[in-house]
Design a binder for these strands. Sequence first.
DNA 1: CGCGCAGTACTTGTATACAAGCATCCGTCG
DNA 2: CGACGGATGCTTGTATACAAGTACTGCGCG
Lengths: 246, 246
Amino acid sequence: MTPHTRYRGLVTRTNSRRTSRRAVYETLRRKVLTLELPPGAALSENELAASLGVSRTPVRESLILLVEEGLVQVFPQVGSFVSRVDPGRVADAQFLREAVELASLEDLPAELDAELVAELRRNLDEQRRPGLTVEDFFALDEDFHHGLLRLAGHGRAWATVVSAKGHLDRARRLGLQETPPAGFADQHVEILEAVLAGDVARARAAMRTHLRAVFDDVEAIRERSPELFASASGTVPVRRNVVVWE
Amino acid sequence: MTPHTRYRGLVTRTNSRRTSRRAVYETLRRKVLTLELPPGAALSENELAASLGVSRTPVRESLILLVEEGLVQVFPQVGSFVSRVDPGRVADAQFLREAVELASLEDLPAELDAELVAELRRNLDEQRRPGLTVEDFFALDEDFHHGLLRLAGHGRAWATVVSAKGHLDRARRLGLQETPPAGFADQHVEILEAVLAGDVARARAAMRTHLRAVFDDVEAIRERSPELFASASGTVPVRRNVVVWE
DNA sequence: CGCGCAGTACTTGTATACAAGCATCCGTCG
DNA sequence: CGACGGATGCTTGTATACAAGTACTGCGCG
């Protein structure tokens, strides 16, 4: 239990040097989630590296992370592809999200953090501003739900939800290409009011209704655009020269 | 909407060539979770590569995945370290797990899958066998909880729970070095009986009691072995030549 | 004896080279 | 005309080389 050498002093002031992998990962993830890289698209590590001005290494490491999130599929010696929206994973994400967000409502403290509440109120005002773009709406929606979790002291659980709900988000975007849905803002208001009133049961009911509405949207989209979803029996990638949707 | 070239046929019969990265990742993850690589240990990519008989590439890619799970910390140009058990992440995992497992109990179908039920029964018999090792107990415990999720049709959500609860598992192992805890098997029995009786409320109560017992164990361990947990203010890695626990 | 500073050995991040394997293309043969 | 089969170009997986930066060591000096 004796140290081998002297302990000279504290190590490692936090090194926050920005690595290029982080930038590459965030870029690719954004492009996948915004459908700029659509489901089924072929991803060549070489091409991505060239277009991003880096080598294969950071690209490859980013793809590995995206595989972990289920957003990309890699077939050794064959190719890498943006994964089709998997209805199974969408359902998984829906279940996970519902479980977490409903459970957090039961952990709300008696005295809510005033700063957080003010933030949520400002968020809702923004949501009802006319002329909101789809991008803005999604960002506000994310912040609102994240804020509710933080209110209950479970803010970090949001990261897990985020990484699991990639498929869910893509499906939602498929259906919300043009205008933000007006009804969702009202549902958000209802949830927050119930929370502020300390009515857990009502908040849970409102939240469940809200999340289920999102899920139903996805089901409708699936009927409209089945080609963007994974087939039931295994996922078959699309070769580059077989353009399915152009 | 016309293909550029003919569609020749089906692509990619599932290539299941075993990559060395997968083996390296599983090895490292196991060593971290079983505390063979204890919290705070320094990990040199070069040393790991040499000892595993591969190059830095698969080692490095595995470490990236472990970072994503929070089991490893990498400081650029400084070093890589097995992360200390972070009480915050333990609490997060506890919350996530409780939310998911309790929610799944509400989704149990009226007719339970007979094969799964039989499997759970066999599992419980095994748990009560005398002379059970700690390793066996953990494996059975995992299977039992996973099986309950599958019973509700949410088996895939287990993967998310697993990747989030690495810190929780390490803390539990710290406390269960010698003998499997006898009480847990009884709690499992109670849960399954309530499920089979179709009594959701009782099943939820039993599950909550069970999971909270696990969590309380962790708290006790923290008081006993604080040096294995992360300090409150930022995580300070341990240099190789400063042996903390040997 | 204590302090400061430069050298050195180590770290991870990135780029590149090579290996193994699959899909396609195209000529050949029946 | 159709089918088979090898050459070819692509893919990802792995190994290695180099770059940038940190921490430790040990000497010199006060």
